[in-house]
């Protein structure tokens, strides 16, 4: 009978709400006891996050092994990823993260690959910006285009004239967006604190 009951959900909800409220109250009322409790909770969170990172790596590995086994999608890329993970893991286990081979792998494989993706992104962005007006022709897209051109011209003087007002306009716009983001963050946080949103399967 008990196997049918889901005990995990209420326990997870109680733990999440309790710890969430303790953290919030300790920021608003920085009393000695509450602050030390907050520090303890945050240090547990750091350990849990490190464990979650390891679980994430195992998940990544298992998903790609599954793809190879089922011959699903780009098997070749999955194979390279799995082999690279195994080799990096073995070398790092033997030599440590500061060892010669792990550092070589990072400097000559990881960094160049990510830099190449950055270069691809630059091309992608240029193409997307050029296509924006054909794909979504409205006032905001036109303003976006004008803003983009002004920002590009403001980097260097054009015909001896330096455009400086874009910095003011850009920071004003960014602050407006940040205000909305801040309010959205508070609303989301409060929904989690009152148990309306339970992103932990509760």
């Amino acid at each position: 009978m008990f196997s049918r009951l889901n005990f995990k959900a209420p326990v997870a909800t109680i733990v999440a709400l309790l710890f969430g409220w303790i953290i919030l109250l300790s920021y608003v009322f920085p009393l000695g006891g509450l602050e030390s409790l907050r520090n303890d909770i945050l240090s547990w969170v750091v350990i849990a996050t490190a464990a979650a990172l390891l679980i994430g790596v195992i998940n990544l590995f298992s998903v790609h092994v599954g793809k190879i086994r089922n011959r699903q999608g780009s098997v070749f890329y999955s194979l390279i990823l799995v082999l690279a993970m195994i080799l990096t893991f073995i070398f790092t286990l033997i030599q440590g993260p500061e060892g010669e081979i792990p550092r070589w792998l990072f400097t000559y494989i990881q960094i160049p690959v990510e830099s190449s993706l950055m270069a691809v992104m630059a091309v992608t962005l240029t193409y997307a910006s050029a296509r924006l007006l054909t794909r979504r022709m409205n006032v905001f897209s036109v303003l976006f285009g004008i803003g983009l051109l002004l920002a590009l011209f403001s980097i260097n003087p054009v015909f001896g004239v330096q455009i400086t007002f874009t910095r003011v306009l850009a920071s004003a716009g960014a602050r407006g967006i940040l205000l909305g983001v801040g309010l959205g963050t508070i609303a989301t946080g409060l929904r989690v604190l009152i148990g309306s949103d339970r992103p932990y399967g509760g």
Binding site: G184, R191, D197
Partner: peptide
């Protein structure tokens, strides 16, 4: 510039209210 339908600023946080994730999403 790149998405078909971009969500600007707080529009992202309004998502739950628009896809019926719960009454608290609308009230928030």
């Amino acid at each position: 510039a790149t998405a078909h339908e971009p969500l600007v600023g707080e529009e992202l946080y309004a998502g739950g209210a628009y896809i019926d994730a719960g009454p608290m999403h609308v009230s928030s």
